[in-house]
Design a protein around this nucleic acid. Structure first.
Lengths: 231, 231
DNA sequence: CCAAAAGTGTTGGATGTACACCCATGG
DNA sequence: CCATGGGTGTACATCCAACACTTTTGG
């Protein structure tokens, strides 16, 4: 690398917006910073990209280190690159932000980095100060998540599916997830038709919920349609 | 920077998909690589980000150097970050891709870098081999441009407006631009109503085209609505 | 029987597309 | 008068939101 010195070196990191549903509300994984800058302030989990590592793989690795959760390669959605010169006062860093969704059940299995990682309601996070430009990243990631829930990308696992713990769900469960992401209620009847009409999301199993689950009429159970291979 | 050596250094570049309309077809700016790797192969214009430079500013600077064209800050749309470890065989580089649109008139005023920059039809570029992962970038940028033409982002200058040379245009001119970007014809009547119904795109001037311009009935002239400041 | 949740039917409005039709100009 | 493009009217399909209504369970 003789010409190396001619151009400035950067640090490249990934920041990850990990979404999940908790108590019916959208939560994101956040850490509390231990050192300067932004000591004590919440931030998104993330870390440095390895010199031989793909950006997406770096996000996947960090996600696993922070949460213990392995996601499929295509379950990570790139949100964008953030590289304002002063975004980190210590050194020049460009961060590539990613969006991931994990099922509700996922307890935070703190790895090395993340003994202090916790699920926080997205609304609360957006209301408080976040480190660096993480508020921008979070806002944008949530917007993207809402888009993805409203119209899932053909041939990929829908975001709502990634947020569900079970492979077989009732449409109420699926609707609850949509409502949590969108932050508003949806009409149950219309939701049914819409989901059932496009086969892309769920397929019927013919079975019904065990009647122990609630007050009313037991719901039909549906299987999350696996992302179909495109032609 | 005592801890600097602990993490790997990257090079960070910007690549820019500069779109324009030529002969009624969508064109993008391309250079032909002079050296290895990919010698003689076409590539997107781009360059290194300065150590104190914002990513968007870097894209703007490169765009000006290549085309002599100054665009507004918000006329650059980020397409994404590309950082596969082997995307450049020489060194590890992460590139942030941007989308820009300039008016038809824009002759390529070759600057230092870009004596060999030229407008090429997008279809042709997508059909041939491009350097690095520039084919991916171009594909994605064009998709994004189509989205932006179909529904412009509130409060920002519509992409079609950036592609027009004049401030006052007929709806046919505007329609021709939309057709070039989308790669298909649009119904003239429906286009009129749609554009006129949302005031976001154009506003009437009350004047008409000078009748010297063509065969048929002279068109009304419209002014491109400047991006309105949001509340 | 009553409350509650699942699921179906129906309706009205908004939107998009196809296409017929009139208008204004140059030749 | 005719060809050409500008512009309007209209009809139809589709989609979506609202909401009435039936079905099936637990208490």
């Amino acid at each position: 690398m003789a010409y190396a010195s001619e151009y400035p070196p950067f640090y490249v990191t990934v920041d990850i917006v990990v979404l999940t549903i908790l108590d019916g509300a959208l939560h994101a994984l956040a850490i509390r910073r231990g050192g300067e800058p932004f000591q004590g302030v919440r931030a998104l989990p993330g870390g440095f990209v390895g010199i031989e590592e793909d950006l997406r793989d770096a996000a996947r690795r960090e996600l696993e280190e922070e949460t213990g959760f392995r996601v499929h390669d295509d379950a990570l959605e790139q949100v964008g690159a953030y590289g304002a010169p002063d975004r980190d006062p210590r050194y020049r860093v460009v961060s590539v932000a990613w969006l991931a969704a994990v099922p509700e059940a996922s307890a935070v299995r703190g790895g090395t980095d993340a003994a202090h990682a916790s699920w926080e309601p997205v609304d609360a996070l957006l209301a408080e100060e976040l480190a660096f430009d993480h508020a921008d990243i979070l806002r944008r990631a949530v917007d993207r998540a809402r888009e993805l829930v409203l119209n899932p990308v053909e041939g990929r696992r829908p975001l709502a599916a990634s947020l569900l713990a079970d492979e077989e769900v009732s449409l109420s469960q699926l609707r609850a997830v949509h409502e949590a992401v969108l932050g508003r209620t949806l009409d149950p009847g219309n939701f049914q038709r819409k989901v059932k009409s496009t086969q892309q999301i769920v397929e019927p199993t013919g079975r019904r919920e065990s009647s122990a689950s609630g007050r009313g009429r037991p719901a039909e159970l549906f299987r999350l349609t696996p992302p179909r291979v495109s032609a």
